[in-house]
Write a protein that binds this DNA or RNA. Structure first.
Lengths: 203, 203
DNA sequence: GTCTATATTAGGATAGAC
DNA sequence: GTCTATCCTAATATAGAC
């Protein structure tokens, strides 16, 4: 009797199921415009049943932000720790893109919907983001000290510009595209380090 | 009797007043989470009175998107047309940042809230965005043909990367900061063209 | 752990007086 | 051109049976 547009039935439903489904919806329609109705339809539950797994809709957003940042922070820490010094920045770029493209929905949501959180929770996420930025800035500072990176631009600017380049790529990258995340990482590494000007051109 | 948090009283209220106020709110709280109540409070009208100036809340979002894109398209077209060939890309970057930072609220809203529009209106805005991208890509292609820009990276990638760099800067630029938009433009031009690596470093 | 039924609040928008 | 009053719909969340 009820319209059931593709009920998932992918095993038992847990809080995790909801987080993943919510990330997809939040990314497509925005956090605020996504309703518990839509979420319940997607996972194949009645609205009320959602509240057995979560307390509020905001919990889902918070969990998405925490999870995406935790994942990328630990992955980037590990890959940077493993690499030899001159390869650290390329490794960082590669890992960032792998993670962000793997968890596209969660990352996009975290970047865009952060300020829909309550002040306390927003503060938590903002702190995690600056923790991540610090990892990158430290790496860039080290590069500047070792004279691998230019010193006429501030570490702050070099960091923010790199984050622009990396973070917002998920908004135009399509999974069905010919290029792999790794190829994209190589391309962006080349561009970030050496620029778009042809070799030997001074402008 | 009524709480009136800083009523504006900046001359007569027009549709334009609402667009500007809405851009500010949409940017701070998101389009969907912004209510007509909040808008009416900010401009100092009753809720019903808004509808003398606009038809729907979505009209405001649409107007914001159209206006920000029209402004930047015509400004960039003009500045690129004026400049001599090797200076065109720097001029483009400078003009883009001037405009986007001047109209921060409208630009941020346009970038983030585009998909809250109805399908028809969204299509209009998407078309305007690709028109803008085409201007940039054409400029980059010309640079590649003249061998000022590297040819081992596709014009598409060079364009998208430049847009990453330019568009998302408005999310961390603060008006009270020491640097002017022009200084920021010079910094990003240097970085985009020549990269973050120290001169003479091959990695 | 999921359901039906519902409480409660607030949303966008309209009617019609002044 | 702005107001008061209100319509109608839908939102998040809860109560309590199964």
């Amino acid at each position: 009797m009820q319209e059931r547009p593709t009920p998932p039935a992918r095993g038992p439903i847990t809080a995790d199921t909801l987080v993943v489904a919510a990330a997809r919806l939040f990314r497509q329609r925005g956090y605020s415009a996504t309703t518990t109705r839509q979420l319940s339809e997607v996972v194949g539950l009645q609205r009320a049943s959602l509240y057995h797994h979560i307390r509020t809709k905001e919990d889902l957003l918070f969990e998405i932000c925490v999870r995406s940042l935790n994942n990328i922070i630990s992955a980037v820490r590990a890959s940077v720790g493993d690499a030899a010094h001159p390869d650290r920045l390329p490794a960082l770029i590669d890992t960032h893109l792998q993670l962000a493209l793997q968890d596209q929905d969660m990352h996009a949501t975290m970047l865009i919907e952060l300020n829909q959180l309550s002040p306390t929770r927003r503060a938590t996420i903002v702190a995690m983001r600056s923790e991540y930025e610090t990892i990158i800035r430290d790496e860039i500072r080290a590069g500047q000290k070792a004279r691998r990176l230019r010193q006429d631009l501030s570490a702050r600017h070099l960091t923010l510009a790199l984050l622009n380049l990396l973070n917002w790529t998920i908004f135009w990258y399509r999974e069905d595209s010919a290029e792999t995340p790794r190829e994209l990482a190589q391309m962006l590494t080349t561009l970030y380090l050496h620029g778009a000007a042809a070799a030997g051109v001074d402008s």
